[in-house]
Amino acid sequence: MDIRQLRYFIAIVEQGSFSRAAQILHIAQPALSLHVRNIEADLGTQLLFRSPQGVVPTEAGEILLRNARIILDQLVVAEEEIRGHRNDPSGVVRLGLPGTVSEILSVPLITEARRRYPKIQLRIAEAMSGFVLEWMRDARIDLAVIYRKVSDAGLATVELLEEELVFFAPRRGLGEEIALPPSGKPLRLADVAGLPMILPGEDHGLRSLLDQHARAARVEMNVSIEVDSYSNIKELVAAGFGCSVLPLNAVSREVQAGSLRSWSITDPPIRRSVHLASSVERPMTNAVAAIRDLVRELLHELSENGRWAGATAVRESRSDSKGVV
């Protein structure tokens, strides 16, 4: 017995006639009669009785009629609820962000999510990109913004942005013994690799990217201090302990304030990719899909209006993986 057969049965009882029901349902009368016989065979009892006044339900037929109406009414309710949920999503969405992304994205994302989707509870957790990825792998979050592609079979990622990395040093220089390039001059990585560098540790994603470019340029980075925190790196550089390479957006305020000076690296240009990750092993709720699309929209907007300094939107949203890379 299926939904279609229940509709047929209700129509026969309401019309009191197989022929009139067949006309309304646009089905041949013999086929309609066959459906009723199949229902009766499944239930093991007679459901309809042909009287001089027309077709009427038996006692068992009355029971089926009452429940069939409840079932079809509930189906309509479910359909309306599902459609309404799609248009007005609700539920909890857990988003993982690196701290540097959260500084730019969290406030506009929360503000816009509250405006568009008041029934969604958005929970944002911050950590380094590597930890955010681990949360994603452990299913502790629904969406993640990370700084690299992944090869996990259970994750799908899409590249949204590229951001520029720049060389920077203290405004007053590093002393008379260490000469810095003229301000505004584009640099090669080889020009600065020998200077005392303050960089994240070797397990940090940004450090891995810099080491990769250094190997490609056949130079060795002169790392004098290792510390993962961007704020600590900037403070140490401003104090004259060395220089560094970080995303332009991470140092733009200090450069504008005059405590640091920055240079573009053009040979080779060093850019870091920003990716949005989601699970392909769990069904995506309408709420998660809504926040996913909003994150993509806002990240592109932040790069276009200059609030994310040095970022360029990847126009065609290149897909890194569809579960498998």
Rank of each mutant, 00 (worst) to 15 (best):
A11R: 06
G16H: 06
A21L: 03
I24N: 10
L25N: 08
A31L: 05
A31K: 14
L32F: 06
L32P: 00
L34H: 15
H35S: 14
R37G: 11
N38Q: 11
A41E: 10
A41D: 14
D42S: 04
Q46V: 14
L47N: 00
L48R: 01
P52Q: 09
V56K: 13
P57L: 10
I63D: 08
L64M: 12
Q74A: 15
L75P: 05
R83I: 09
G84M: 02
N87S: 09
D88N: 15
P89C: 07
P89D: 06
S90D: 10
S90Q: 10
V92S: 07
V92T: 15
T100Y: 06
V107D: 09
E112A: 09
A113Q: 01
R114Y: 15
Y117E: 03
P118K: 04
P118I: 08
A127C: 06
R140D: 13
D142T: 12
V145R: 03
V145W: 01
R148P: 00
R148S: 13
K149H: 12
L155H: 01
L155F: 05
L155C: 02
T157Y: 00
E159G: 04
L161K: 01
E162M: 04
L165R: 00
F167L: 12
P170Y: 09
G173E: 13
G173H: 06
G173A: 05
L174T: 14
E176W: 08
L180A: 11
P181W: 02
K185R: 12
R188N: 10
A193E: 09
L195H: 11
P200C: 09
G205I: 13
R207T: 11
R218D: 15
R218C: 04
E220H: 10
E220K: 03
N222R: 08
I225N: 06
I225R: 08
V227K: 02
D228H: 07
S229N: 09
K234I: 14
K234H: 11
V237D: 01
A239R: 11
S244D: 10
S244V: 07
V245T: 15
L246P: 00
N249M: 05
A250E: 09
V251Q: 01
E254G: 05
V255S: 03
Q256T: 12
A257C: 04
W263T: 02
I265N: 01
T266N: 11
R271N: 10
S273K: 10
H275E: 05
H275V: 05
L276W: 00
A277H: 00
E281V: 12
R282D: 14
N286C: 13
R292P: 05
R296A: 09
L298D: 08
H300N: 11
H300L: 11
H300F: 12
E304C: 02
N305F: 06
N305W: 04
W308C: 02
W308G: 01
T312M: 09
V314W: 01
V314M: 04
E316N: 14
R318K: 15
D320Q: 05
G323S: 04
V324A: 15
